[in-house]
Design a protein around this nucleic acid. Structure first.
Length: 309
DNA sequence: CATCTAACTCTAGGCTGCTT
DNA sequence: AAGCAGCCTAGAGTTAGATG
């Protein structure tokens, strides 16, 4: 569940105006925004949707000017039990969100139609050894572009921005490698090829034999791409720093590696691997690739978390 | 409105040469 | 020899706009 997102319907100028005009108040402790109620002449105008979000207690001011839209945490308190069905929960922003708002939770799993403590049943080694035979990860010189050195984060959003700003040859190379991968390594026809990058760079990286197989990197919960068997994952993902900072305010960590792994697994699992058919992967980002190797090589999520921290 | 056409995009495959 | 990179081409598919 996406608990916190950016709210950008109201510009900085508009917000300043609303504040100066006394339309909006900010709670001193929670930083939550509320609309100044005036029953004698109720507001009706351009900012109706903003006002409604304030009334629904969904907007929070982060720092001086960033407005975040957040699921009001007290809504959760209205339920006796809330069940969230997910995987790698510790890497999700929602776990940080719950911690920030002081909620506790139990991890459970279904065993023979019964809920059991997750910790007792989280061994995945059997299924992972099956996946190890089905998932073929490219290992060769075309991964060079994603080589990790120092503090650089190749294939991250800011890396892409830098390559374009400084007009380096990296994106051309990456495009060529991806072409070559689908053509010579995976050797699958275009209809079985899927690829992704950040949407801003889709046009720049598209190429022979895979252009039409673009699947958004944050794509989830769809069966549409089940015929894909060769995939190029051209991203290196990180949690949004502003939202992380907001959620981690009270020293609660969003584990960025676990988050990245979870995003990537979601994407890979759009393919035919979900019906246990073999797939080929091209993951030039060294960080993302080694996260996948680590995931395959650990027996359980607790063991994985132990190795990450 | 349907259909036709021209322009364009994409694909599969082939060929060559380079590097390791 | 294997892996990589870059080129070319016919033909298939797509699209926008013109034509009847």
């Amino acid at each position: 569940m996406e608990c916190v997102t950016f709210f950008d319907q109201v510009t900085e100028c508009d917000f300043q105006m609303l504040k100066d005009g006394g339309y909006v108040n900010q709670d001193d402790i929670t930083n939550r925004l509320s609309w100044n109620v005036d029953h004698t002449s109720p507001y009706n105008g351009k900012f109706n949707s903003f006002k409604r979000l304030c009334d629904n207690r969904k907007l929070v001011l982060h720092g001086e000017k960033v407005i975040l839209q957040e699921f009001p945490s007290e809504f959760l308190g209205a339920f006796v039990d809330v069940y969230v069905l997910t995987y790698l929960f510790e890497g999700s922003p929602m776990s940080a969100y719950l911690a920030k708002h002081g909620y506790r939770y139990n991890m459970l799993t279904l065993v023979d139609h019964e809920l059991k403590p997750w910790a007792d049943y989280c061994d995945e080694s059997a299924i992972k050894s099956q996946y190890k035979d089905l998932i073929k990860i490219y290992d060769g010189s075309m991964n060079k572009v994603g080589h990790q050195s120092g503090k650089r984060h190749p294939l991250s959003v800011s890396w892409y921005n830098t390559q374009v700003r400084e007009s380096t040859s990296a994106l051309r190379t990456l495009q060529g490698s991806t072409q070559n991968y689908f053509k010579k390594v995976a050797d699958t026809p275009a209809k079985h090829n899927a690829w992704t990058t950040f949407c801003k760079y889709q046009g720049r990286l598209k190429g022979e034999r895979y252009t039409k197989g673009f699947v958004a990197f944050n794509c989830r919960a769809t069966n549409e791409h089940i015929e894909k068997r060769s995939m190029a994952y051209l991203c290196n993902v990180f949690p949004n720093p502003v939202i992380s900072q907001y959620l981690n305010g009270q020293d609660i960590k969003v584990n960025s590696d676990l988050y990245a792994l979870s995003e990537m697994l979601q994407w890979i699992w759009r393919s035919q691997i979900r019906r246990y058919d073999p797939i080929h992967l091209f993951i030039p980002s060294e960080r993302m690739r080694s996260l996948l190797y680590l995931w395959l090589d650990t027996r359980s999520t607790p063991e994985l978390i132990g190795k990450l921290s």
